[in-house]
Simulated assay, not measured.
Amino acid sequence: MVVLGIDPGITNLGLGVVEQVGKQARMLHAEVVKTTHGEPAPARVGQLYRAVYKAATTFRPQAIAVEEQFFYRQNELAYKVGWAMGAVFLVADQLAIPVYGYGPPKVKQALVGHGQADKHQVAYMVRAILGLKTLPKPTHLADALAIALTHCFYHPLRSNKPLS
């Protein structure tokens, strides 16, 4: 199974592609797509769309896994993360790839064993599971790979349905 993991953000979008064969997982691709605050919103969303589309058409994932965001007081941030999610959803629709969402506690539970793990513990487990020589940096990259791995762990259990 090939999974495209996304840590959504308008300024920094983490993108990681993981392939799982049996119990072995390996990283196929990882990048952080950066946009700048001074660019018009359509250009920023277009840049994200093109990067996600390129990864999806290159690696042909069976699923896209995204970090579900929870915002309580940051309406503007939630709005802009929505722009990034729009780019991801458009690619998913065009290529008929199901999208699954995982909240941070579920990702931490899957990789570290408890939902209160810190980012360093998650990055350490991503490195260990994927057999990387160094910790994936920046955190957007580690998060994208962690989300892809989480889908690999949960999907065989059929415990999660595609986002609707």
Rank of each mutant, 00 (worst) to 15 (best):
I64S: 02
E67N: 02
E67R: 07
E67T: 03
Q69G: 08
F70V: 15
F70K: 08
F70S: 11
F70I: 13
F71W: 13
R73D: 10
R73A: 13
N75F: 14
N75E: 06
A78I: 07
A78T: 09
Y79F: 15
Y79N: 11
Y79Q: 12
V81N: 04
V81W: 12
V81Y: 11
G82C: 12
G82I: 12
G82F: 12
W83H: 15
A84M: 10
A84Q: 05
M85K: 03
G86N: 08
A87C: 02
A87H: 01
V88K: 01
V88R: 03
V91K: 00
V91R: 08
V91Y: 05
A92R: 02
D93S: 15
D93F: 00
Q94T: 04
L95N: 10
L95K: 09
A96R: 15
Y102P: 01
G103P: 11
P104I: 01
P105R: 12
P105A: 07
K106W: 00
V107K: 05
V107H: 07
A110D: 09
L111R: 05
G113E: 02
D118V: 01
D118E: 11
Q121V: 02
Q121R: 04
V122M: 06
A123V: 07
Y124E: 04
Y124Q: 10
M125S: 09
M125V: 05
V126K: 05
V126H: 07
R127E: 04
R127Q: 15
A128E: 14
L130Y: 03
L130I: 00
L130C: 04
G131H: 09
G131K: 04
G131N: 10
L132M: 13
K133A: 14
T134G: 11
K137C: 00
K137S: 13
P138H: 10
